[in-house]
Nucleic acid binder design. Structure first.
Lengths: 297, 297
DNA sequence: TAACACAATAAAAAAAATAGATGGTTCAAA
DNA sequence: TTTGAACCATCTATTTTTTTTATTGTGTTA
């Protein structure tokens, strides 16, 4: 003997329409079926829900309290069914995205916000990794999307280019390199290079293509830390331009006069695996991210 | 085709014990019954809950999300059943108490607090009325309990005495009556008497037994207002002693030297009707109130 | 490879829900 | 007051749903 959702719906209808018979009518069932269900519910709960002493059966105070709880329950059932319907319409249950810490968060956040405003049932998980760590995480977690500076291509990976971005080689104004003209690689080697620690590869041989191979390299975690370290005069390093627009303008950071080029452009890519096709939310979010990256930061 | 609570329980068990077969075992049903129910649930929701491609059927991400919702639902069902069980154990759904505003609220509040701490499912409604208004309200609302200074006895009303209380005839120190010795009724008639408006009877003939019949009577609502009015020197009147203990002591209120007695004691009664026998919460609360009234305020 | 655990399926059996009929109320209008 | 309508409980036959039993296929493990 078990509690039946359908019976709670019947209870609700009876109260709503005022009689067993009318509720039966609304349900397209015989009145005896309604009587039977209510009786069964009463027996199950051990509570008299209706007072039959009067002409029209009317709710007892206990029945009223049960009805309130029952309605809450019905609402929750509806929620569950809506959730299921969303899933069956192609919305995936979860969506994991790995993003390279070098890329700006703002457009992603804006895209996620827009996604959430569309009442999408998908639970989004966002992780930040650095350099090869992004792809490593993407592969080992079977993530759905990654946003990378660059990646190791495989036959399954599908990528869409985002708008081009630039990193700038900078140092603090008081740093010796800031005043130097025509800087060559050998000059750089005498100073501390600040770099983001690769979050993926344990292999210390792996190096960022932009790394100079100075004797002293500081590994930091995250570009905000890196920017701060550079501004404190700890060393020099590459920083995404969107992070230091203001600082370059008011010259609290100096772009180094590096002979081989103090700017390095790259096109971030939005990548997913054709082995794990994107669901509806994944496609939608991809489009949103693409859009947001076109906007100025 | 409708959502079945029992099936959610099955879903829960499968995940909990790791296989359809074990869940069936725990339920004391055949494994095929579990298969059938899950299949039905999947069809109803239009969502694949388990991934059968592997040896052990394992939850899909969608299934996992549904399970979370389902468990919440199950908890709510349990709540509903607990509520029903309480009712069937004799706890009434609601309990309405009318109390005379002349009586101290503190003991009642303490009793209600203790009741609520006992996890009683009953919803308590407390109303304050004055004089005949208490009984009037009790009768017309079919209330469960009333706490009165006095009441019109009928064969059905059952009462329990509480501890004796006292009202005192007082005025402000600057009031002319305060300095008068051996006050008689005629002296009182020259001043404003402050009285609580009877909240019940519309009939203006009805008078509180303690009312003096002065020419000018001010009707107030509530003893706090009355006390304030007296302290402001507006007039004289009867006030329950528990309200003015401090004021009598520091002589910011003066007990009048009324010849026929400046103190009037009465025994408040806790009353219910044998036509509406008290439920478990009513009995319990009665006892608690009795107890609390024995404590000093 | 054999024994085992797991899940899907089909068919039969059991259980539960429903419709339809009947009877006893109460209510409201004639 | 009578009469008819609306109400709900209850009974039985019928239909629908659920469960069991038995079987098959597949993957795992000893």
């Amino acid at each position: 003997m078990k509690l039946d959702i359908e019976t709670l719906k019947i209870l609700d209808l009876i109260v709503q329409f005022g009689s067993f018979a009318k509720a039966a009518d609304k349900l397209g069932r015989a009145q005896s079926a309604v009587s039977y269900q209510i009786k069964k519910l009463e027996q199950h709960l051990g509570v008299e829900l209706f007072d039959r002493s009067k002409y029209r059966a009317e709710l007892t105070p206990e029945g009223s309290a049960i009805l309130v709880e029952g309605r809450r329950l019905l609402q929750q059932v509806r929620n569950l069914e809506v959730l299921a319907e969303r899933f069956s319409q192609g919305w995936e249950a979860k969506l994991e995205i790995i993003i390279d810490g070098a890329l700006p968060m703002q457009p992603i956040m804006r895209a996620l916000k827009r996604l959430s405003q569309m009442n999408v049932p998908t639970r989004v998980r966002l992780k930040t990794e650095f350099l090869s760590g992004v792809q490593h995480c993407f592969d080992s977690n079977n993530s759905d999307l990654m946003l990378v500076k660059s990646y190791q291509s495989t036959p399954y990976l599908v990528s869409r280019p985002l708008t081009e971005m630039t990193t700038v080689l900078v140092a603090a104004p008081e740093h010796p390199l800031s005043d130097l003209k025509n800087i060559e690689l050998k000059h750089l080697h005498g100073h501390i290079e600040l770099t983001i620690a690769d979050s993926g590869d344990q292999d210390p041989n792996f190096q960022d293509e932009l790394q100079f191979g100075s004797e002293r390299v500081f590994y930091l975690s995250g570009f905000i830390t890196k920017k701060n370290a550079i501004m404190m005069g700890l060393g020099f390093g590459w920083v995404p331009d969107y992070l230091i627009k203001q600082e370059l303008e008011d010259r609290s950071l100096i772009e180094l006069d590096y002979m081989s080029g103090s700017r390095h452009s790259f096109v971030p890519k939005l990548v997913h695996s054709s082995e794990r096709p994107l669901g509806r939310a994944g496609c939608l979010l991809s489009d949103l991210i693409l859009e947001e990256f076109k906007e100025p930061d």
